[in-house]
Amino acid sequence: MKSATFPPFFFFLLYLFILLISLYCILLLLFALYIHSLTCIYTAHSKPDGTPGIHKFTAMGLLDGRRIDYYDSESERKVPKQEWMRECLSAEYWGKGTQEQWLESLMNRMRQNDSVVHVLQGMRGCEGKMQPDGTLKFHRAMHTYAYDGHNLLSFDSKTKSWIAAIREAQLTMREWDSDQAMKERIKGYLENVCIKWKKQLQKARIYLVHIIFLSPAPPVVYVFAKKAKVETNLILTCLATGFYTKDIIVRIKRNGRVLAKDDGLMSSGGLPNGDDTFQRRDHVEILKSDLSTFICNVTHEATNISVKKLWGKELCCFSFVSFLSLD
């Protein structure tokens, strides 16, 4: 009695089925291991030294490492750093601010004054691990302080206890460890509220970015000139920014001829702006004495828009050249 035989095509289908199942399992595993984070980083200075951008207190929120909002003690208002953040949160949220209050008491405990600048830094947030069913599960909490660049205190949400990194922080550690209500609030925020915020912001970002802000956006085009290292030369730059999708065509023309790498043309290629749009910067070095007509021609196929910008004629007289639109 002959044993049953199967055609080669059967084994091909079986192999393909096993391969697809294996790939699916790998994707599920990778998806499950994908970590999302929501953190707030804040910095307090005992005495700002007048450096621009340095304030007595600053704070910023980060979603998956990307800055989403900012606050400082001078403006006393939260500012969205992503347009979708402005859309998904109320005006009441942006009017609120918070400041770290215990830097002065910390300096007193360390018997320090403000003759030199002291800096207190903090980070508070959570990480969630994406599950195969699309839910976000709490993974890890972060609540730490550093003082003058050295680790100071950290909170362990598992044991609901504070850990002092240096001897000077032990008194604060004992005081905070004795406040059970405060520790419960911190644990509740890190393991529950923070994760819920992360879910809401992630959903809002996915919806608003892909439905509203990632619809094709036209480029804004600037042209300018600046002095080159060689005294007799100028660098002409064409900047296209704020566009989506990434694909864009930028051409710099001299008397109608498109310049190429052989002419010294350099391009940054498409670069992210940090708000889900892109930019591209092309430049070429020319002689100041060159009286040719230079035009930047930008074409963005996603929006079917073409923009032309003309450099001014007297390039030798300007370090920054205004532009004319030929649209």
Rank of each mutant, 00 (worst) to 15 (best):
Y42I: 02
H300G: 01
F12Q: 04
K203G: 09
L29R: 05
S115T: 11
L152S: 08
T172V: 13
L171F: 11
M107T: 05
C194I: 09
M85V: 03
Y244G: 01
H55I: 02
F10N: 01
T159A: 11
S268Q: 12
S292C: 12
C25A: 12
M266I: 12
A181I: 13
E83M: 14
L214Y: 05
C126N: 02
I235K: 03
Q131P: 01
D148T: 00
Q279K: 10
M110H: 05
T144D: 06
I248H: 05
T135N: 10
P219I: 14
A225S: 15
Y222C: 02
T51K: 14
F224K: 05
T98F: 11
G53A: 04
H55K: 06
L315Q: 07
Y189E: 07
S3I: 03
R185F: 14
L103K: 02
F31N: 14
E87Q: 12
F17K: 02
F17V: 10
Y93L: 01
K227M: 08
L171R: 08
I286A: 01
M182V: 14
D247Y: 04
I41V: 15
S178N: 12
F138Y: 09
S75K: 05
V298Q: 07
S22K: 07
P52Q: 03
S115Y: 05
K246V: 00
R167Y: 02
L265A: 10
A228Y: 07
S292M: 11
P132F: 07
P218S: 04
D133S: 08
P48G: 04
K81G: 07
W176L: 14
K288L: 15
M123T: 07
Y244N: 08
K196Q: 04
S115L: 09
M266E: 15
S115M: 03
E83W: 11
M123R: 03
K137D: 13
W94Q: 11
R86S: 13
D290A: 05
P80T: 10
K261R: 10
F17H: 10
I295D: 06
L201G: 02
E127W: 09
F155G: 01
Q99F: 09
T232R: 10
A181M: 08
P216C: 10
E314M: 13
K226S: 15
Q170M: 01
D114L: 11
L30E: 13
R185V: 13
S75Q: 13
N113S: 13
M123I: 03
L63G: 00
T293M: 08
G125W: 00
H283Y: 15
V116Y: 03
S322W: 01
Q101M: 11
S154C: 03
A4H: 10
K253V: 06
E285W: 00
L201W: 08
N192Y: 04
L271G: 00
N233W: 03
L19V: 05
Y34T: 15
S46I: 07
I68Q: 06
G128P: 12
L152R: 07
E83A: 09
H283M: 14
G270V: 07
E76F: 01
K203I: 13
L14F: 08
R280Q: 11
N304Q: 14
F224V: 08
T299D: 08
E231S: 12
H55Q: 08
S73N: 05
P7N: 15
L324R: 14
